[in-house]
């Protein structure tokens, strides 16, 4: 028996919004420790890794580990039927071929359930090595989303250069070029608005704007985003999900031909 309950459907809706642009379907691996998802996008350029810890749920029970392959468009249709403040419970029997979502309104006067067929997905799991990154940048997630959206208008590829002084995002294309420089702030009062950089050595890497835009769909999950970079390895864009876990996106850099 698997049962996981969250008092606010809004969180699950946001998680789904954060993955469904990159993935059509995904396997949710459920175990004692929580729910995990790891999947590459269709073109195998990026990787999504989601962890929702069991202790972050209001109720969590997983007698036997199970993998639930879900069509994310179908899951999205179901979650649209929940109000943000509904309690949501995800239920499945051991070896079941369906999963059930139960939505309960705050006053319990409305209870709805939606059963969805599970899919057998032959998904490839990649081993992600532990990396000591040369640069780790932390900034407001809204600021990152804004920069990516603004610059993507002017080119397909953004160059991210990180030094001790700050981080520079640059794009050039047919129209011309654009640069956004963010300095490291010493804003201790407003930690949420600060830009901080931990740097071992400077890094410059190029990435496809289109994927970065997809990653920023996770912005509603967290006020902060963390970018981790080292030369010649994928960028990691991480959003913490308060008291529940995190979503990490890995993106292969673009390399000069």
């Amino acid at each position: 028996m698997f049962e996981a309950r969250l008092t606010s459907a809004a969180t699950l809706k946001k998680v789904l919004e954060a993955v469904k642009e990159l993935l059509n379907e995904a396997s949710f691996d459920c175990s004692d420790s929580g729910i995990q998802l790891q999947a590459m996008d269709n073109s195998h350029v990026s990787l999504v890794s989601l962890t929702l810890r069991s202790d972050g749920f209001d109720k969590y029970r997983c007698d036997r580990s199970l993998t639930m392959g879900m069509n994310l468009a179908s899951m999205s249709k179901i979650l649209k039927c929940a109000n943000n403040d509904d309690t949501v419970t995800i239920k499945a029997q051991d070896d079941a071929d369906t999963v059930t979502f139960v939505f309960e309104s705050k006053k319990q006067e409305k209870i709805s359930d939606y059963e969805m067929k599970l899919m057998n997905l032959d998904q490839e799991h990649l081993g992600i090595p532990e990396t000591d990154f040369s640069c780790v940048i932390r900034m407001p997630s809204v600021e990152f989303a804004r920069i990516v959206r603004d610059l993507a208008q002017f080119g397909e590829t953004v160059l991210i250069c990180c030094t001790k002084e700050g981080v520079k995002f640059s794009v050039s294309g047919d129209v011309g070029s654009a640069n956004v420089k963010l300095a490291q702030t010493n804003n201790f009062d407003k930690e949420e608005e600060s830009v901080s950089i931990e740097m071992q050595e400077p890094v410059s890497l190029s990435f496809a704007c289109q994927y970065l835009i997809s990653f920023t769909k996770a912005t509603p999950l967290s006020p902060r985003v963390q970018l981790s970079m080292s030369s010649n390895v994928p960028l990691v864009v991480e959003y913490e999900i308060a008291e529940l876990g995190y979503i990490r996106y890995y993106l292969a850099p673009k390399i000069e031909d």
């Binding site: 590459m40 073109s43 590829t157 673009k254």
Partner: peptide
């Protein structure tokens, strides 16, 4: 001119 490599070039299949 940039080329886009697959994420598979960096992470091996488990």
């Amino acid at each position: 001119k940039h080329i886009q490599k697959s994420i598979r070039n960096y992470f091996k299949t488990k």
